[in-house]
Design a protein around this nucleic acid. Structure first.
Lengths: 204, 204
DNA sequence: CAGATAGTTGACTGGTTGGTCTACTGAATG
DNA sequence: CATTCAGTAGACCAACCAGTCAACTATCTG
């Protein structure tokens, strides 16, 4: 079996970079090829359409991040601290990317998903599937927090989805306003959404 | 002064419809013209670019909605009820649109803004400006609720921005997942974010 | 009715798009 | 050393893109 190539990965990397920074629509196959150092023929050898490449790129991104997510949401970390670490991590990453490209880029799954959702079922379904996996991290952290009496969450799955949605809204808004501040403040918002009980409670 | 025309408005209407349902990138000037019953020449008579048209379309949409927003957030309505009414209204509207086009469309400002933000400063700034106006409704409702002792919100502006972001995340996710359910559940999430105190409190 | 103004028409351009196709190349196997 | 086959090359295509332009038309004012 002759020749091995890392071109497939170079293409998915290039595609994700470009679509994240710009958008699905403005990222042309030509531009992806240029950045990956590929020619058209190679592109359509590996992928049968731009849509399929995009789905593959999102899956590849997930696979790259999974180990990291596993670490951040390790059951050995106290449940509420997992969220803090995760939010810090994303904040720092986006701030770092801003240094490189001048913009807060938000979440690629949301940006691409929202752009494409009414027109491309394959990509839409891919985003949906990856979100489900991500939400599981939230869900089990919430369940753990609940069982430790840190929060009141009789329906961890619903709580996880709600928090996930709130977080994504914050990322999306940060992208549009090109401002990290909202993201930095989110940890406190998350506490409200989770309904974290105060040790030194003045409340209600 | 000869001839009057409603074409400018027909064009902004058509543009917003198409971009909301699909995306900025996939909405061509030709398609906008078709839907508005205009020819290319008319388009570029009123607008000097697709970008300018888009900004105008977003502003026009705001103007159409403003009276409605004023009513929903009337100071004569109890502050927390204003949110409930607003969320109900948006939910119903999106559900109604889903009947027509099969999809939950989310918020056009967010979808278009997110798609275009790194590449089109004019549209980005327009979204930003309109958001600021909308957040003011949230802000004064929060301030009123605070002064009535219904919630604890020492920084109403920050609270308003946070709630606004959470809400938009929910709308965006509803679009990608094509599912109204998240939106329906948001009223309760909003209560958490706002930190609504329970009359019959078990809490803390 | 004359002229000015506000709006309309649609052919045209030059560049870009996603995608196809045929010819080629280079490394491993027998 | 020849065959095989994963991968590469890049010319090519029709459709489409945003935007231009010069000619045209309808309506109001004097």
């Amino acid at each position: 079996m002759p020749r091995v190539s890392d071109m497939k990965q170079r293409l998915t990397d290039a595609a994700l970079d470009l679509m994240w920074e710009n958008s699905y629509g403005t990222t042309s196959v030509d531009a992806i090829c240029d950045r990956a150092g590929a020619k058209k023929g190679s592109f359509y050898y590996f992928f049968k359409s731009k849509s399929e490449l995009t789905a593959a790129a999102l899956e590849a991104e997930w696979n790259k991040n999974k180990a990291n997510m596993d670490a951040l949401f390790s059951p050995t970390t106290p449940p509420l601290e997992r969220f803090d670490r995760y939010f810090d991590y994303v904040h720092d990453r986006l701030a770092e990317l801003k240094e490189e490209c001048g913009s807060i880029l938000g979440c690629p799954l949301l940006s691409i998903g929202s752009e494409v959702s009414t027109q491309d079922q394959r990509v839409r379904a891919t985003v949906d599937r990856i979100w489900d996996r991500k939400i599981k991290y939230f869900e089990s952290a919430i369940r753990d927090a609940h069982s430790q009496g840190l929060i009141m969450a009789p329906d961890p799955e619903a709580k996880a989805r709600a928090l996930f949605a709130c977080y994504h809204g914050t990322l999306a808004q940060a992208r549009v306003q090109n401002d990290v501040e909202l993201i930095r403040d989110f940890k406190e918002v998350a506490r409200d959404v989770l309904g974290v009980k105060h040790a030194n409670a003045i409340s209600s």
